[in-house]
Computed example of a mutant assay.
Amino acid sequence: MTTSSAAIVAEGLRKRYRDGLALDGFDLEVASGTVCGLLGPNGAGKTTSVRILSTLLRPDGGHAEVAGFDVTRQPDQVRYRIGLVGQHPALDEALSGRQNLVLFGLLFHLGRRRARQRAVELLERFGLADVGEQPVSTYSGGMRRRLDLAAGMVLAPAVLFLDEPTTGLDPRGRNEVWESIRVLVRAGTTVLLTTQHLDEADQLADRISVVEAGRVIADGTPDELKTRLGGDRIEVIVGKPTDLALAVEQVRRVVADEPTVDVDRRAISAGVGHRAGAVVEVLRALDAAQVAVVDIALRRPTLDDVFLHVTGHRVTAEVAA
């Protein structure tokens, strides 16, 4: 249901393509001035939902509002209040970074003087002031990404859609973008973020919605989602792939939780609650079964555990949906 504090509301959104349903009863509510991380495996419907919410695509059914306006009946009102940064930079490479930002300002009807002022502000914020007069064709991939993000922030929009905002950035560049996003949110902007980087979602998101087969299947704060897995988890990495099945059998005998397996990493993970002695028990069982262990540890659940648990996929394997 729509609430007065919600900047984004989607109810029962449906969208069909030739090869099937992309959205099948998609529901989402994002409170104003917060960051919502949208996670999901390949083909889950994340990009389709963002395209509908940003008025680039019409739904086949359901209802959605952004910044208090209906995305289908009032698209112009929605567009005036949102920013959208897609997966690929939307820049004119023949123009300089400053000229690109001025152009976006003029397209948003800021007026030439204000557009120039805003360009200077954004170049400084994103660490591009020293290259602002250079053609974008000379920029590195990370620099282009930062400029593209700056272009999406020209109006300091009420709602900002970010699709993989830090792709191609080094750790320093990622931290700069993260801080810029935090500044926007503190000023009241609402952010809907799709990302492959779970640490990014953990750093930025107030709430996370996990999408699978066109609908949200899990929703909550990062801590709430981790807590639902139940206490600590034990992780075992075995030396040989052929030992995985036997290792799973031994772990299953010791812990109550059904183990999950990452074949590529030769890793087995299972919830153990708060049993401090679980590591020793599992290690003894594996030793008795003559399973060579490379590493074993007890740790808190991560968002990767949450994602794997609810979808059956690791987020690191995903591409744009």
Results as ranks from 00 to 15, higher is better:
134 Q>I: 08
27 D>V: 07
64 A>D: 09
13 L>H: 04
23 L>S: 09
193 L>S: 03
28 L>W: 05
12 G>M: 04
258 E>K: 09
305 D>M: 01
230 G>A: 06
123 L>S: 05
275 R>N: 13
39 L>P: 08
221 T>Q: 12
236 V>F: 02
262 D>P: 07
245 A>I: 10
24 D>I: 12
230 G>W: 07
299 R>V: 10
189 T>A: 12
143 M>Q: 01
186 R>M: 11
97 G>F: 05
31 A>I: 09
234 I>M: 07
41 P>G: 05
61 G>Q: 01
188 G>C: 03
22 A>I: 09
205 A>E: 10
183 V>R: 15
38 L>M: 13
119 A>T: 05
173 G>H: 02
34 T>S: 12
138 T>S: 13
103 L>H: 14
321 A>Y: 12
151 A>N: 14
237 I>Q: 11
243 D>G: 01
109 H>Q: 14
133 E>G: 12
41 P>F: 06
128 L>W: 13
271 G>D: 02
111 G>S: 12
188 G>V: 03
64 A>T: 08
34 T>R: 12
123 L>V: 06
58 R>A: 13
230 G>V: 09
175 N>I: 08
307 F>E: 02
44 A>G: 00
186 R>W: 12
7 A>C: 11
207 R>D: 07
302 T>P: 00
110 L>P: 01
266 R>I: 10
258 E>F: 05
212 E>R: 01
240 K>M: 11
137 S>A: 15
318 E>W: 13
14 R>S: 10
51 R>L: 11
46 K>F: 00
220 G>I: 11
79 R>G: 08
144 R>Y: 10
68 G>K: 00
51 R>G: 09
241 P>I: 04
7 A>T: 07
200 E>R: 07
154 V>F: 03
30 V>W: 05
135 P>R: 08
272 V>Y: 13
277 G>M: 05
174 R>I: 09
28 L>C: 01
254 V>I: 15
212 E>N: 02
92 D>K: 04
154 V>T: 06
170 D>L: 09
120 V>I: 09
302 T>L: 00
75 P>A: 06
11 E>A: 14
22 A>D: 08
222 P>M: 12
231 G>L: 04
202 D>W: 08
289 A>Q: 04
2 T>W: 13
90 A>R: 03
28 L>E: 03
203 Q>P: 07
124 E>C: 09
252 R>G: 06
117 Q>P: 00
74 Q>H: 08
273 G>H: 03
31 A>C: 08
139 Y>C: 03
229 L>E: 09
191 V>P: 02
289 A>G: 04
254 V>Q: 10
165 P>D: 04
276 A>S: 14
189 T>R: 07
316 T>D: 15
202 D>C: 10
98 R>T: 05
85 V>L: 08
319 V>M: 11
213 A>Q: 15
222 P>F: 14
76 D>S: 13
91 L>P: 00
152 G>C: 11
208 I>Q: 02
78 V>W: 03
31 A>R: 15
36 C>S: 05
117 Q>S: 06
311 T>L: 04
194 T>I: 02
226 K>T: 03
233 R>D: 01
190 T>E: 04
152 G>F: 14
273 G>W: 03
26 F>V: 03
157 P>D: 09
34 T>Y: 03
